[in-house]
Structures are given as C-alpha cells and as structure tokens.
Nucleic acid binder design. Sequence first.
DNA 1: CCGAATTGCCAAAACGTTTTAGATCGCTAA
DNA 2: TTAGCGATCTAAAACGTTTTGGCAATTCGG
Lengths: 404, 404
Amino acid sequence: MSKVKTRRPARPGTRMTIKDLAQKLGLSITTISRALNGYSDVGEATRQRVIEAARTTGYRPNRNARRLVMQRTHSFGWIRTDSEGLFADPHFVEVFAGVLRAAGQHNYDVTFAAERDKDQTELYDRYIREQSVDGFIIELPRPNDPRITLLLEAGVPFVVHGREARHTHYSWVDVDNRGLFRALVGAMIDSGHKRIAFINGDETYCYALERRIGVGEALAERDLPPETVRVLNSRHPMGMFGFQLTQQALEDKKATAILYSSSIMAVEGQAAIARSGRRAGRDIAVATMDDELRYVDLSPYANIFSFVRSSLHAAGQAIVEELVRQCESDPSPHGTMMPARFHMLPGLKTEGLPGTAAAPPAPGQGGMSQAPSGRPETSKRCSNLSLTGEKPILSPGWKVELPD
Amino acid sequence: MSKVKTRRPARPGTRMTIKDLAQKLGLSITTISRALNGYSDVGEATRQRVIEAARTTGYRPNRNARRLVMQRTHSFGWIRTDSEGLFADPHFVEVFAGVLRAAGQHNYDVTFAAERDKDQTELYDRYIREQSVDGFIIELPRPNDPRITLLLEAGVPFVVHGREARHTHYSWVDVDNRGLFRALVGAMIDSGHKRIAFINGDETYCYALERRIGVGEALAERDLPPETVRVLNSRHPMGMFGFQLTQQALEDKKATAILYSSSIMAVEGQAAIARSGRRAGRDIAVATMDDELRYVDLSPYANIFSFVRSSLHAAGQAIVEELVRQCESDPSPHGTMMPARFHMLPGLKTEGLPGTAAAPPAPGQGGMSQAPSGRPETSKRCSNLSLTGEKPILSPGWKVELPD
DNA sequence: CCGAATTGCCAAAACGTTTTAGATCGCTAA
DNA sequence: TTAGCGATCTAAAACGTTTTGGCAATTCGG
C-alpha cells in the first residue's frame, strides 16, 4: 500500500499538441509558437504553412501550459457570498451581462466562485496564491471592506463596483449616489412635497448609506427637519420586499411621495398602493432609481414614475475595461463615474396632491457638478422604456483621476 | 527587431512555491507534494511539519501547474449567448446560485464566457481544445441542438438543463414539462373553464414546446377542440412581456382563465388585468409555473394564483452533482427529473366565474407516472410563500436510468 | 541471525507551452 | 576575402506541479 489515492486513467481522446504540429511540419516547436503568436522572426511562407496546419488540425495551445509559463490566466475572478439570497439579485445579472460582453471582447473569461466561509477574504487569498485569476471584481462594498484591504496588500488588480471611504488608492466604477439622491429628494421638496417616504436598500452597504446621506444633505440645505423624510430599509442588500415596505410607508397618511432605491421595489410597491385604495401618480408621487433591469418592465408605469436611470450593463463593461487596463498597461488606480439621467414627470405630478403647492420642478440642483453627462435632464415623458429587444449600450462614462 | 511583441515584466511580488517549501524544510518536493495530498507513504511527524509550514507560509500549489500535470481543471464551463437580452434572464440567476453553491462544496468553480459568434459551438470547441474546463453546463436546448452534438462527439462531460429529443445518450436535469402542463390545463378544464389563454415562452426552445404539447394532450384526452386554449408566445426565451401578452389574452372576452409559463409574466400581467377592470381570482382564474424566483414576490398573489412550483436552485445543484459524478467516477449519462408540487386553489376559484360550472378540481391525472414526488399535491392555501430570507434547499430529485 | 516485508523518503520524468540565447546561411560592404 | 548583418530557424531552459520507480533503513517472522 504505497498510496491512498488512485489516479483516474487518462482520457483516451488524445489532443493535438504543439509537438505534434512541429513534427507534422518538420519544424521546431519554437517556430510553431512564434508563428502562431505573431513574431516577426518567422518567414511569411512558413507562417502561412503553420497557420493553415493549425486550422486544419484544430490545434489550440493548452491553456494551462500557457498560463503556467506566462503567469497570466486571462480570467477575472468574481467571488460572491452565498448567503442572504444575495446571489439571486437581479441587479447582479445586469452587471454580469456587461462584464461578460466586455470580457469576451478582450478575450478574457470570468471565473466564478461562491464564498462559503464566514471569513469574507479566504477565497480571495486562495485564488491569489494559486494564481487562478489575473484580477478581481468586487461588488457591494461595505464600510472598511476587508476584501479591499486584502487585495491592496496583495497588489493584485481589482475593480470595485461602488466606492468605499476608508481606502483610497483603488479602482472603482460607480454612480454619484449621494448627488443623485440629493437631487431627487430636492426635486420632490421643491415640488411641494412635505412628507416623503424613502424606501432604501440595506444601509450597511456603502451605496445605500451614500444615498441616505444625499437625502440628508438635501434636507440640510433647505433647513428642513429630518422627519420630512421617513427612511425605510429593505433587509435585502439591493432592495426587495417592496410590497411590505410600501405598506409601512403608507401608514403615514400625510406622506405624498415615495422614493424608491430600486425599480424592483417600486414595481412591487404598486400592488400595495393599489390595495390601499390610492393611485400612484395621482394620489401619491412615485420616484425611483432605475438601474435598467432588463426584465423589470417599467413601461406600464411610464406615466406614473419619475426616475433616475443609470445602466448597470454599461457599468459592467466599464469594470472590465478598467481591469484590462490595469492588467495590460497601467496598474495605477482610476475611478470611473457612470452617467445617470433624470426623467422627471412635470412637477412630480404635484398638482392636486394634498399638502402640495403647484411649483415647477427644479431637479438636480447641486451635487452633480463633477458629473457632466450626469447633469439632470428633465423630460416630460418617459421614452424608450419598452423592453422590446436589446438595449443600446451606453458609453462607459468618463474617467476621474483620484487625488494622490 | 527580433520580436514584435514585448513581455510585461514579471510582477515583483514573488510567491512561495513547493520548491521553496522543500528547501525550507530540508525535504524533497516529492515529499511536500505527497504530504499535502494525503498520501500514506510519508511519516506522520513529517506530514505535520509540512502542513504547519504550508500554513504559516501561506503556501498554495499553483493551480495552473497542477492543472497542466493532472489534466484536470476543477472548473466547469458555462457559455451563454450574449444576444436577446437573454443574459439578464432572472431564471438564470436562480440556477446559477444553485450551481455555484454545489460547485463550491465539491471544490469546483465555474468559468463563464459569452458566445459572441453566430456559430453557437465555436467557443465550446475552443474550450475543449484548450482544456480550459472539465465539463460544460448546457441550458435552454433547442430541437437538434448543435452544442449537444459537438459535446457528444468530443466525449466531454456535460449536463443539459432541459431535454432535447434528437440525442439520447447525454445527462440532463429537467422537470416533466409536458406532464405538468397537461395536468395544469386538465385541472382548469375539469374545473369548468371552457376558454383558456396559455401565455407560453418561446416555443423554439424545447421546454416551451413540451409545455405546449402537454396542453395539447390534455385537450386530446378530453376530445376538446384546439381553440379551447389560445396560446400566446413571449418573444423572450424564458418569458417576459407579461403585461402586453395579458392584454392580448384579455381581448377574448370569453376567456375565464389564464395559464402562465412563468411567474414573472404572471405578476407582470396583474397590472393588465387590473387595468381591464377585472380582478384576478374573482373574474378570471390565474395559474402559473413558479420557478421560485427569489425576487419575484408572489406573496401578494398567494390567494389569487394557482401554481406548480419547482426549484431552479435545486436544479442547479443537481446539475453540478451530475457533472461531478461524470468527471470523478462514472461517465455514463444519467437523467434527473426534478420534483414539482401543485398548489391549487380550490376549484381554481371557478365558483362565480361566468361560463363555468362548479366542479371539484382534479389535478394531475396522467403524465406524472414516472415522477413520484412530482405527483400533484393539492393544497387549499399557499404556504411558505413569503420571501423572508433564505429558502430551504430542496433535495435534488431522483435519478432515472436512460434506456440503452 | 537472515531474508522478507514495510516504512519513509527522493531523483527524475512528465505535463505543453513560451522565451532566451544562439546557430546557420546567404548576402553585402569594405 | 572576410567581417558584419539580416532573415530564419532551433535547442534548451524555464514555469510549478504530480507521479513513477526505486532506494535505504527499519522491522518482522522464523
């Protein structure tokens, strides 16, 4: 008994290697490699011969051998926690679609794993030591996120979707959560609303915290008391349970407007509003952050909701562009602020609402100074909302140099 | 000018290798490897020394070297088409969550790529030749699917989520689409409904086609004309556009019941029903296939919808179990039929509906013979529907031997 | 006390690439 | 004539593991 484990017999199907190809053509493996990889020290005739032979035999270099010698995997790591049903988050799919599209264009793929231990960083550490990937995608950062600390120490490329205040020198892709929500609530207030419910995500995540801070700033700017806005938090990281939360919000009979942190909750909430006997857009104003979730059909609500729209698909693409840049040219950190657009119904439908005075909407005052294409645009009517087919891909925003 | 491309300088951070560890301990690399891999021909004292040293130095074997020599990647490939917005399909996330959880438990990860060419098989072929993964996950098969043909020829492990009639010797995980929908429509008819709208997915996919066939069988069994059921197809592979399709369905004033192929469409359709002045569950019966999409909150409709529930999360897990089995022990193909449960409101709420006669529900006659735990269960009230937190993981069903 | 079995370890081969550092050959310029 | 040079090609060394086959030393059975 010399060993305890036995090896499975190698699969019979023998694949073509570079050695076979060299033998077949009477060339050295060096030449094959260099011909296929576009080096200039191989004759044009030879190169054509090699390429043709590779094509007909279907030769493809073994990726693991290549990875081993080149110390590069051409794969990005994406590790998600398995808990809280967070995996089934619809926002995730949208980002994922963008990530995968852009990754494919750059000839990368994405290695996915579920973090199963309490220690959030264990799998990251392992993937780094095993050289499984070239870089990481980090999402949903929390204040003082240990993953960022680890990756900075390890010196591995990574991009955070979102931002976190504790660390500074890292790459991120984000929207101006604080500014957007300051503007949104500001518009509501300036339209005459005096009691507003804000149904936010889980504020232990930075993005939701920033949104709340933005709301607070809008109040402070106008010397209004905190009670003007009642904040309700979803237990789900990205916001669900919209039905229940809306029911809670409606308990306050004086509330004339609801602001949602995600369109899922906004749509879910419609049932609760209807059940309460009110009608959205007439008895109560509804505004929401719209992340362009491709399968949340907002078109039935196009004349009811005001919203701020930003593309998660584009964010996913921007994340990959940044990762590729870090891995292939310049490892210095960059932040990318994604654009957002305001689509506001006139006066947030304030006319006729109890407790409001008719006033022109004045969306987007302040907070958007550093976001040119994010500058609020007012539109009377929501266009392009139907989900008939492929959405156009937005340009991935613009770059912001991080201060040193 | 000897080469056209330049190599990036190696990253300074030098990682610990097995050689370093051997040197440090005064042992051969063979011993390190065998100690760490649990072979019995290394002394217990030595083994402890090695394990301790590996722990303190944080040594982890280079995964690419390991893959190269072992001819095994411990990764499964999942390739999706980038088109049609199919990527953002919410059903996908649910399966994905299950796949990743099970994969993690077996120490696999998932390599993801987007198929960007028209040729659906190109990337598969490439991944096989490059030995990038140990096996594949195939989803949404279409009749005579070229991917299955390719993978069978290549002799690579793979599991199809769904089934396809043309090929036989392959592994699959599926529900009994045909039997379930035969039973569902049968129950509707037997409850007295004489005009039914069936809002199905895209019938160029096998799963939707099977469902339609099942519906047809229910009619044939009862000698009813095809017009009894009006079929409307979503352009989206897995079913969306529920609002518009429901509006179409409601044009038929005599229709007393709507059957949805997915809960997304069912929920979307609610707005259309409400807008038409009818009330679901009173003026019109609603039944749906419920794939337990974690973020489609069905609880507001718990007393309105009848449904058949099956867990995509469990399906994802079953897929991985099957892949692991194929890769690590027995490569012969197995089919796994996932269980489903009927949750029927009494009589499908037929009482008081125009054009129906009161009749007891008789769900699930026929079609379920080979699906023991899929045998319809009737429940008066839908329980456990709220989405408060983690869903329990269902057992992955039972095995069905494929005929030879 | 001797041969055989067992225990604990190791050198070297293999996995399939890329890259380094030449080697060869014909041509040109001095 | 020859040194130099450009154009092609290649042998060998990496990359970091696992596995094969074997070698000592120790223990054991008789």
